[in-house]
Amino acid sequence: METEEKTLEINPKECEPQECMAALLPVRDALEILSGRWKLPILIALSDRPKRFKEISKDINGITDKMLSKELKDLEINKLVSRKVYDTFPPKVEYSRTEHSLSLINVIMALKDWGTLHRKEIIGK
């Protein structure tokens, strides 16, 4: 079975450096939004249902409360996570993935596939 080779719409040999860099801005944006150690694990922790802060913290081994709070705020700003505050005492807050975050499923799977190939190439596993 032959694999279809995909090419970037931008050929660095055929465009001026400024044009090429401008065309890659969406890629840089995406990498910046998802960069870091914790954003993808947070999205995965929220994939099955909305969760409270401590539930997310328990699901992600090694993350501090301060870092979780920061990353949740970043994900909320980028409309990948929503925060719902209930009018109760004590206040109840739940976090969930947004519809927009579901558009990342294919991206995450493609990164997983590439990461698997890369691991085999580099360390043979």
Rank of each mutant, 00 (worst) to 15 (best):
S103D: 11
D65P: 04
K66F: 04
G36S: 04
R97P: 03
E4V: 14
P41A: 04
V81C: 04
I108V: 15
A110T: 13
C15F: 11
L75S: 02
I60D: 01
D74V: 04
S35R: 11
L117F: 07
V27D: 06
C20Y: 09
G36W: 01
R119H: 11
H100M: 12
D48E: 13
G62H: 05
V93Q: 04
T3M: 11
A22K: 14
E2D: 14
L46K: 02
E5D: 12
I123N: 15
G36N: 07
Q18P: 02
H118W: 12
L80G: 01
S47K: 12
L46Q: 02
I56P: 00
P17R: 07
P90Q: 08
P17F: 08
H118D: 14
V81K: 01
S101R: 02
L111W: 06
I63F: 02
M1A: 15
S69E: 12
H118Y: 14
N11G: 05
P26R: 06
D59C: 06
I105G: 05
V27F: 11
F53N: 03
I123C: 11
G115P: 01
R37G: 02
S47E: 09
L117V: 05
I108C: 08
P12D: 09
R37F: 07
M109P: 01
P50L: 01
A22F: 07
S103N: 12
N11K: 09
R97V: 04
N61I: 07
N78I: 01
L117D: 13
T7H: 14
C15E: 14
E19P: 01
E55R: 04
N78W: 03
C15M: 13
P26S: 08
A23T: 03
I42E: 00
M1V: 09
